[in-house]
Design a protein around this nucleic acid. Structure first.
Lengths: 146, 146
DNA sequence: ATGACTGCAAAGGGTTTGCATTGAA
DNA sequence: TTCAATGCAAACCCTTTGCAGTCAT
């Protein structure tokens, strides 16, 4: 029974600020790991668990958004408006896609089968300009950063 | 240097047959875990590693396709033609979406930024008929699977 | 003073891998 | 006979969690 739910008082810790600031500074849809590494350089005592906890907090409180990448680590997005992403199949980097939000996409479903559709996610896959220009200077072993 | 690549001779093992057959029988976009469990009932000696190895083999050899679900375990699909999926936010089940393949979707990108776009993936999220009909007979702790 | 938040390390889910052995060709 | 495929367990990656201590309020 949580009839009287007291919403917990949130506290502004430096760690939380650092996490938000890191995402805003990096701007490149970092993975939690990348956020951690960015912070760790200057503040080596901040733990990875704290980075994860704060990323989750910031996403849940609407200050950041989460990009779930199929088959890879999540990314964090400093942009809040819904938009789409493209993932480079070679280097794994994630970029924003310059495409209007497809508000009518769910309307193209012929038969929803009784599903109540709430949202959608589009991910494109391709080769980014960096990787595309290279003449595959990779060794066989170094191939695809998985 | 792989000038003369000898493609390895593949062997038809019962395990491989069992994995393919399980996916075809289940038909419901099973996770590798579900495939393993299905096989395990009748053939308890088949190991999970073998299930994973064979799923990967079957996907790579074009006999099955893989549905990477953002933020959850992969699913395996017995259907090879490109199509889309919807994930129930409550029970996590994955269903096919009855929507034509959006061949022109990439054309809606205003500026590709030099990206070479190869494919896309659309995932819808919602509440499936089973879960929608229920009056939330959940306890607070049992809420949202995972 | 309170309890939200931290650092740490352990545990968890999902998947891959090393190795000795098995068995399809 | 050969070496692809297996069973097993350990390792791996990403993420969450339990706990004792800390610190913003």
């Amino acid at each position: 029974m949580k009839s009287t739910t007291h919403k917990p008082v949130t506290r502004n810790t430096i760690q939380r600020d650092l996490v938000l600031e890191a995402v805003m500074t990096l701007r490149n849809h970092p993975t939690p790991e990348e956020v951690y590494e960015h912070i760790h350089k200057e503040h080596p005592t901040v733990s990875k668990g704290t980075v994860y906890r704060n990323l989750n907090f910031l996403v849940e409180s609407g200050q950041l958004s989460k990009i779930p990448i199929p088959g890879a680590a999540h990314r964090v997005d400093h942009t809040l408006a819904p938009h789409y992403h493209i993932v480079c199949k070679q280097c794994g980097r994630v970029y924003d896609v310059d495409m209007p939000y497809q508000a009518k996409l769910a309307g193209k479903i012929r038969d929803t089968g009784g599903f109540e559709i709430q949202e959608h996610e589009i991910v494109f896959w391709g080769i980014c300009p960096h990787c595309g220009k290279r003449q595959w200077p990779q060794t066989e072993t170094a191939a695809r950063q998985k």
